[in-house]
């Protein structure tokens, strides 16, 4: 089971995660990353990895 962690402290609000994985990520009222779920559903795993790869601030970690 893959787990999702985000580090709001280094987020720059580019929004790539929300664009490529809207089921997993949102932006809070300050525009910073929020993980909608801590456990990644199997079908969302590719999207989770893509979001982690695209995040310019490397604020997203997916642990299998």
């Amino acid at each position: 089971m893959a787990h999702l962690t985000v580090d709001e402290s280094c987020c720059v609000g580019a929004g790539r995660c929300v664009s490529v994985a809207p089921e997993l990520f949102d932006q809070n009222e300050d525009g910073l990353v929020v993980a909608i779920r801590a456990v990644v559903p199997a079908g969302e795993l590719p999207a989770a990895h893509e979001a982690a790869d695209l995040c310019p601030a490397r604020a997203i970690t997916v642990t299998d």
């Binding site: 609000g13 929004g15 932006q27 009222e29 300050d30 525009g31 910073l32």
Partner: peptide, 12 residues
């Protein structure tokens, strides 16, 4: 500075 602006450029 950037954090003063991020809320205004979110995807939503």
């Amino acid at each position: 500075q950037r954090r003063m602006l991020t809320a205004s450029f979110t995807v939503r």
